[in-house]
Design a protein around this nucleic acid. Structure first.
Lengths: 243, 243
DNA sequence: AACACGCATTAAGATATGACATAGCAGAGG
DNA sequence: CCTCTGCTATGTCATATCTTAATGCGTGTT
């Protein structure tokens, strides 16, 4: 049986804004089911228009663009709570692909009903826009990272930010969290070559800041890592809506 | 006197979606005035929360983030038709600053009324989300450019995309359009040093692809430029909403 | 066992880019 | 006319990063 939004375990997390009664009612109708997919499945394909929209409940994935040269730019990492398919919903088609890197469980919505969301539940429409604005913010940060940081700092900040996201979701304990990606994924996200990524990872490991092996991230020295990344260790996760 | 939305000269442009009667009525109430600012004015400041939202009508500007190191990442170039302040509207505060590089004229909206837009005019709310999704798409493209292209290709693609935007707005004639930015602005947008940008511009000029001097962009050989940028010359501007 | 395969790792040479130094050039202002 | 300032232009040199290639190490398959 699928989970009732009422008891959604994800929504209990303090990072997510509480939902008002009418919003909850709407979501229970809006949600059409759940989807479980295997690691490696392509959930959305760049240039196509999915009839479904999703919210990730469990597992992790990747958003990426494939360039003409065949190279890949990873746009972002998909963690539980992320909404998938906004572009397919409002624009004609997805501008990037989404792929599961672990088995995933997703909440399924029907694209056809998206307009109903705007018409009947402006609170949820507002939240959707909110999510889009946050995504824009995150991409802006990524841009600044690619534009101005060297490999070491890029990787350090990626780890800090992933760790913070994981911690907010309750995935991290004592600086350890699952991070089921390949070095190539990280390289493609940060615009580095695989080789250079590998060397820099070793450097960080030797320096005692962070270790990432077998899909496990271990932040050994958070402050040191933030120092390398040039980030303020005191940042706090923003309260955000869950759709 | 301020322009009535009814006669908005910008909206006549074929890039912008036509507006339904009720939307137009709403916009006429939503618009609270017009603002004229001088070149160099900072319209929005990162970390603050503007009580106003804007749509650029005339002139050009820049969105940028200032990094802790004092460096600057230009997120995007602001052209007429761009909506400014979505983050201030839905999130607590702006995540980037916006500055005018020429004198600008802007349509002014009141942030307080944004919720009314969602409640009373779902069509407009939908369009707002649409804009956010497009912005996300553009940033994704920028990310791919920074991540995978060398200086030459970065600059070439920036010019192609700016030219296309300008052409859609009727700013470009025979490959010429005003582009009132400094080399430093372009460098900060593309994550290149000023010097390298300068050298690469010369290279492009010598190669006969494009010339950019005195705030004027001249695309001499569009196909060549697209070739360098690795872009398909046949791309078409997407029809988009104007807010 | 033997092998192929995906992934992490390491090495060595090539190159794109940044840092620094310096000069020219135009406009603003006295 | 001179000076100051901001922008553009150019050369040299150092280095971060890429490319290519080769190796090892587990896992699953035949």
């Amino acid at each position: 049986m699928t989970t009732d939004c009422l008891n959604c375990p994800l929504r209990q997390r303090p990072v997510f804004e509480p939902m008002k009664g009418n919003e909850l009612d709407f979501m229970r109708k809006f949600k059409t089911g759940e989807l479980e997919i295997n690691a490696g499945t392509t959930l959305m394909l760049e240039g196509t228009n999915s009839p479904q929209l999703y919210t990730a409940l469990k597992g992790m994935g990747l958003r990426y663009k494939t360039l003409k040269s065949g190279e890949r730019q990873v746009i972002n990492f998909v963690l539980p709570g992320d909404f998938i398919g906004l572009q397919a919903g409002v624009m004609q088609e997805m501008q990037h692909s989404v792929e599961a890197t672990t088995d995933m469980k997703l909440c399924v919505f029907d694209r056809k009903n998206l307009w109903r969301l705007f018409r009947d539940c402006p609170e949820r429409a507002y939240d959707l826009t909110w999510l889009a604005a946050v995504e824009e913010h995150l991409l802006g940060e990524n841009l600044a990272i690619l534009g101005h940081m060297n490999g070491l700092r890029r990787i350090a900040s990626a780890f800090v930010r992933l760790h913070d996201r994981g911690a907010a979701l309750g995935l991290a304990h004592n600086g350890r969290m699952p991070l089921p990606y390949k070095q190539q994924d990280l390289a493609d996200a940060l615009g580095l070559s695989l080789v250079h990524t590998n060397k820099t990872l070793r450097h960080l490991r030797k320096g005692g800041a962070v270790r990432w092996m077998n899909g496990q991230l271990e932040v050994l020295d958070y402050d040191l890592l933030c120092g390398i990344a040039g980030l303020d260790p005191g940042r706090r996760a923003i309260l955000r809506p869950l759709i």
